[in-house]
Simulated assay, not measured.
Amino acid sequence: MADPQLLSNVRALVGRQYGRVYAWDEVNAPMIRQWCEIMGVENPLYTDPAFALGTPHEGLIAPPAMLQVWTMEGFHANHYPPGSTDENPYEVLKLFEQYGYNSVVAVNSELSFTRPLRLGEKLYYTTRLDAVGDEKTTALGTGFFVTLVMSHFVEKAGGDEPVGELLFRVFKFRPANAQPAAPAPAASAAPAKAKRPQPGISDDTRFFWEGCAQGQLLIQRCTACATLRHPPAPVCIQCHSFDWDTVQASGRASLYSFVVMHYPEVAPFDHPNPIGLIELEEGVRLIAGLVGIEREQLQIGQRLQVEFQTFDDALTLPLFRPVGE
């Protein structure tokens, strides 16, 4: 049964409205084009000015699903434009944590739209703690469903106009069958060093990890049609043959894309932690860590070379390091 004081504090927050978070940029064609390319959207209403001019919209509009994109914080966490609120709309989640509900899982997210966004419009959103459900017990554990609603507006001289809402619901809970905390180590004992998580290894992937241990980057190859494939799979994606062997890649590659992980910081990884989508010289792509380079030096298309590093005397990984022209 939940603590009565917790329930009282939580109910007092329901309905609270949090201040504005502004968009960094006006709705603009380059961001729309890039989003459409990434998402595989080919509707000319979003990218072809001549086509859009002949529609009832009389010009380009933004894809409705981009609503949240315009007000995102950007590359750095909690980096919002001047004038944005510094209130924490997730304070109710922090309140639950004080009473032992430390786990969270996203349940659902729903977008609704009033009208399309047009080029040159500037957005902001406000957040409302819409609801906190009664205590529930699920397979995950016991906790509460928390619903937040982000209402989006376009700034206008004659009065700001609502254009859509984002509903976001999470389950804040105490895990079921949680293990009791281990006894605290003696003051003189050194803290245990976190180890790299081990990959799941099956009959389809064992060759890859055994190759890494030998300093070889092995790629699966269909023996029927010679198609290379990665990640490994039991059947060829081209001719559906089950027969395959491997070929050793040269290790030469280029950086097709990348992300830099800042948060959450998870031991034993270093942060910021750059991860690349690597395009091998042989034509297949794989995801791997990047070493020997700072975030500011990363460039799409730059040349890379594989190197193998062993962690915890057990796990050998292919990492990629930039090479000179």
Rank of each mutant, 00 (worst) to 15 (best):
R115G: 11
L304Y: 08
A178P: 10
E26M: 09
C236I: 10
M1E: 06
A139N: 11
V105W: 05
V323A: 14
Q5L: 14
P231D: 07
V69Y: 13
S257D: 05
D204N: 10
T223N: 09
I201Q: 05
P89N: 02
N9H: 04
V266H: 01
M66H: 04
A50M: 12
P264D: 05
V260G: 01
V69D: 11
H76D: 14
E73D: 15
P274C: 02
M72G: 09
E91D: 05
A157C: 07
K136E: 14
H79M: 03
H262W: 00
W70A: 13
M1C: 04
A12E: 04
P162E: 01
G143E: 01
A139H: 12
L93W: 00
D48W: 04
P185Q: 11
G120A: 10
R33G: 12
S8K: 08
A23I: 12
R16C: 05
H152G: 10
A131T: 00
V105F: 03
A176H: 01
L7R: 02
P63E: 05
L67G: 05
V154T: 12
D48A: 09
F308I: 09
I300L: 11
S109N: 13
P199M: 03
D313V: 07
A181F: 08
T126L: 02
L111I: 09
R128E: 06
W35G: 03
R11A: 08
S254G: 06
L53D: 15
F258T: 00
T147G: 01
Q238F: 04
Q299T: 06
K136Q: 15
G120C: 10
R321D: 01
G15C: 09
V105K: 06
K136R: 14
E161Y: 15
L315N: 06
C36N: 09
S257N: 10
K94W: 01
K156H: 03
G301Y: 15
D160H: 09
L60E: 12
G159L: 02
I32E: 13
Q238M: 07
L277Q: 01
F207Y: 13
E161F: 14
E87Q: 09
P63D: 04
E26W: 03
L13R: 03
G211L: 02
S103V: 00
L129G: 00
E265R: 09
N88G: 03
R285T: 15
Y256T: 02
S112K: 08
V260D: 01
R252N: 14
Q305H: 15
R128F: 01
H230I: 05
V69L: 13
Y80P: 00
A65W: 00
N177A: 08
M31G: 09
P272T: 00
P234E: 06
G301S: 15
P44Y: 04
P191W: 10
I32F: 12
I61P: 11
V154R: 11
V21K: 08
R196Y: 15
T147E: 00
Y46V: 08
V105N: 03
H230M: 08
S254H: 08
E37K: 13
F96H: 00
T227K: 13
G324E: 11
L286E: 12
S241V: 09
A189K: 12
F51Y: 14
H79R: 01
G164I: 13
